[in-house]
Design a protein around this nucleic acid. Structure first.
Lengths: 200, 200
DNA sequence: TATTTTTGTTAACAGTGTTAGTAAAAGTAA
DNA sequence: TTACTTTTACTAACACTGTTAACAAAAATA
């Protein structure tokens, strides 16, 4: 009755091809250049085949949003050394966040870009909560270390995320304000202020 | 020879109509819904007429980017009281920036949104420099007041703009991190840290 | 072998930005 | 007023876009 193993495998291979080709198009020509017909051309199948694997074009973007949050989470975990003290870990988190963004700008664009449909659905992704929790863990640790238990952890989360996103977005916009400031210098500067606002 | 005064006036009226209708469409249905044909329908003219007044669709977006920076500059000037001390003025600037963004979200979107064509050309706008200079003025004043002449004013500009943009973007994305933190609380929190990083 | 199911195709619909070619209207000169 | 020129606005097309209904071919099942 059900599909044979070979068929399932072939289907998965086709889906992988769609993803691979989409990735290539986006990487080389940007999100605006990604079209169903271009993907169909690349995988050497007709257009409707793509709709067998993805409900619509949005679902393809969503795939990369999901993948993006996975990669972001990994990058954060990779950079944060649990044994270190909290101020260092916050700096490591910031660096991880920034490295993810500059190494995967297309992912970051579709994850957080304004004016694109996906932003309405940003709260629907599971891994975004895991990223939040990662940040909250460090914030709680910092609050505990500072002895200022009255500090609102959610306020601090939103502030932290805002600072990180702002730096990344301005960097990706390449809003070159006169001189060419090294981005990590801005990162250091902003995060320094942030850490002091909790710990000092 | 040249066009009569009446004709010039009529032309300007038509251009104004294009702008007005575009504004309405964007305000009600978002940037994605703005199309040349929809504008043509609204002004009750055929499509090519629009190309008499705007080189292409991008030029229409650009018009609103320009208008946006005008409004932003006005909002900043309106909120900053020259006689006040610099830490207050920095707070006023932040509030002005934030008020502009929440009161003109569509403008902000097209001015700073990632993934839309306009971001390649963000450095081409004149008024963005005026906004930069406005910020730099206050930063210089703060550096002078702090006595820390070694501080890089452009680094501080980029940090400030990053923080402001981050807060606004996260707010417009409505990336509701658990509770509903009042945005101005985040603003206060982040700007506090920023001001201390210069003054203290 | 005959029948059913799956798979992939063509072709269309309703949109999009943009422009070449043309008809009508308005302005100018005789 | 008539003849000519310029301006103005239109229709229709081109080359795209996402999406889907209808159909043919291939594969699996009875």
């Amino acid at each position: 009755m059900g599909l044979s193993e070979r068929k399932l495998r072939q289907q998965q291979e086709l889906k992988d091809q769609i993803i691979t080709c989409s990735r290539e198009i986006v990487e080389n020509e940007g999100w605006a250049a990604l079209s169903i017909r271009k993907i169909a051309d690349a995988i050497e199948y007709s257009v409707p085949v793509i709709y067998k694997h993805f409900e619509n074009k949005d679902a393809i973007s969503s795939y990369f949003v999901e993948e993006g949050f996975d990669k972001l989470l990994m990058e954060l975990n990779q950079h944060i050394e649990p044994s270190k003290e909290v101020s260092i870990k916050l700096r490591q988190l910031a660096k991880g966040y920034w490295l993810f963004a500059v190494n995967h700008p297309k992912h970051y664009e579709i994850m957080f870009g304004l004016g694109i449909p996906s932003c309405d659905r940003i709260n629907e992704y599971e891994n975004i909560k895991k990223v939040s929790e990662k940040m909250l863990n460090l914030i709680d640790e910092a609050i505990l270390a500072s002895g200022k238990e009255h500090v609102d952890r959610y306020l601090k989360l939103k502030t932290l995320w805002s600072i990180l996103h702002g730096i990344v977005a301005i960097e990706l916009l390449s809003l070159n304000t006169r001189e060419n400031i090294c981005p990590s210098a801005v990162l250091e500067d902003a995060i320094d202020g942030y850490i002091k606002s909790i710990l000092v």
